[in-house]
């Protein structure tokens, strides 16, 4: 289970680099989501020094070499200075299966966002879409067909 994060304008895009969010990885997913979405809290808390231009601290939990768990080059410093992007889009385009534990972990990821930030979903495979609709969690999250659609709908502040 790995996540890949980038910042595009006022949106943080987090792509799940795994085929499943199930009971076996749900806790790790939740922890990685916290890590991705709280970078700003570590470095840019009120009254704290903005870290140097080297960008956010490297991920602490064993990302394999060569994977992108950081913020896209060039976007990190500016985004840090401005605080966290208000919108987080979770790109599920590579995920084919989410079970009840995965649903719980996605809800938890939303709840651990700071006040004022929102979590949206994109790229739900048919079976994933089905569990969201069966549990009516599709009424809790804004869901986009894919990442492209999610970005087109981004309304800059």
């Amino acid at each position: 289970m790995q996540l890949a994060g980038t910042v595009r304008g006022t949106t943080q895009v987090i792509t799940v680099m795994a085929p499943r969010i199930d009971a076996a990885v749900a806790i790790r997913f939740k922890d990685l989501m916290r890590e991705e979405t709280e970078r700003w809290r570590e470095g840019g808390a009120p009254g704290a020094e903005i870290p140097s231009a080297s960008g956010p601290a490297p991920a602490e939990t064993g990302a394999a070499p060569g994977t992108t768990t950081g913020i896209a080059a060039g976007a990190g410093g500016g985004a840090m200075a401005q605080g966290p992007p208000p919108r987080v889009v979770l790109d599920l385009g590579r995920v084919e299966f989410v079970d009840s534990s995965g649903l719980g972990a996605i809800v938890a990821a939303m709840k651990q966002l700071e006040e004022g930030r929102r979590l949206e979903l994109a790229g739900l495979a048919p079976l994933v879409d089905r569990v969201f609709r069966l549990t009516r969690l599709d009424t809790v999250f804004r869901i986009h067909r894919d990442l492209e659609e999610a970005m087109q709908r981004d309304i800059p502040e």
Partner: peptide, 17 residues
Amino acid sequence: LNGPRDDLPEGGFGWYL
């Protein structure tokens, strides 16, 4: 699912499914 965000359940979906 109708409560505030912080009250949303993180479990209980399994047997419902």
